[in-house]
Write a protein that binds this DNA or RNA. Sequence first.
DNA 1: TCCGGCCGTTCAGGTGGGTGTCAGCTTGGC
DNA 2: GCCAAGCTGACACCCACCTGAACGGCCGGA
Lengths: 223, 223
Amino acid sequence: MRILLIEDDPVLGMAVRDQIVADGHGADWVTRLADAAHAVHAAAFDLILLDLMLPDGRGSDFLKKLRSTGDATPVMVLTARDQISDRIAALDAGADDYLVKPFDLFELSARIRAVGRRYAGNPNPLVALGDIEVDLSARSVRRAGQTIALTAREWALFEAFVQRPHQLMSKPQLEERLYSFDAEVESNTIEVYVARLRKKLGADVIETVRGMGYRLGTPGGGA
Amino acid sequence: MRILLIEDDPVLGMAVRDQIVADGHGADWVTRLADAAHAVHAAAFDLILLDLMLPDGRGSDFLKKLRSTGDATPVMVLTARDQISDRIAALDAGADDYLVKPFDLFELSARIRAVGRRYAGNPNPLVALGDIEVDLSARSVRRAGQTIALTAREWALFEAFVQRPHQLMSKPQLEERLYSFDAEVESNTIEVYVARLRKKLGADVIETVRGMGYRLGTPGGGA
DNA sequence: TCCGGCCGTTCAGGTGGGTGTCAGCTTGGC
DNA sequence: GCCAAGCTGACACCCACCTGAACGGCCGGA
């Protein structure tokens, strides 16, 4: 799972992040709501851990805004023991769970696993790119209503782009993503798979930036 | 990535430096804070590994001073197990991560990769220069809302200016940055690329200081 | 066990855009 | 007005990239 941690306390934040990584998940850690907004815009997360008191605003407001955009990512709120009213506000705003500080890290792991189980059986938000629909949990892609079959490698590559829409990714980065960063690949595998994705999904799905890498394109012309 | 290692222990320093190089990154190794200050002044790093106990001062003071100049380079602190108070001081001073000695070199590699991913995948604060927006992680530049495509070399040069806004940079300095400091370039390449950037981004992005070098300008007149 | 299809990977040939170089021109200092 | 430093348009080369094809391994079915 990929988890976004929004927490301004450096000590707690680091501890939680390390625990997440130790549990085998991916962790992105930000300390301000502005950065968090950026992050959810740039990538798809499976879970968001949200502190309520942040330097640039209240977590519940962030959550409310997130829900209003139709984003259904599970959110677990981290609260201090005395912030009861805030906690209720968070639940009302659409939080899925909460954890009272100070909490045990094992407790955290257990809750995250629980979310994972719940999440696995749930319908996933569809990611839309022009006339392309992507279902990250079902691993299916449709263009103009037509479901398109992708092989394992093709999907792995495509997913890397979808998860960070505006990001430029170099070939070494993509190789590290497709092959568990030890297996050396000494050929133009990435180029070939980019070509195959373009053939299946349309030439405009992936944009080449010469000398630097690739980036998700704008199918259909829209943002 | 280019990494600055600040560590006075010769054995550990050498081991860490070799590991960094083995991981495919560039490593600069200094043993004193005075040299470190020199290094960050002279070049831009993607990551700084900082020992806290150094012969000529405390690492946390160095870090605090670095942050006060607006430098946001990720810093990973290397600490002994018992320097808890120093560790907290370092985090407060703006460290992004820490590693407790003695640490495994594989652990070090993993953390460095994590920094790379975080750096690459994270919402980077957009740098604003008048009406120009720069996203260092996405490698995108927009002027007045219009995204402008830069080639690899153009970006490399522009990035050099953006990363140190008020600094004057001589042509040899810039050449060293664009070409990995051995390849001799015997022509006016820098002048040519400065011209290309000006044509794409506007004549006022880069300012010429006759006989000395170039400096980031003040597009739009502001700041 | 053999066969056939599918997937992943590699290779070679072709192409276009980026890059570096140069020559001539402009600008600024004295 | 002279000279040095910087600017700019043009151009040829080269390499990053694209693409079609072929090879080998894996797996399921006969």
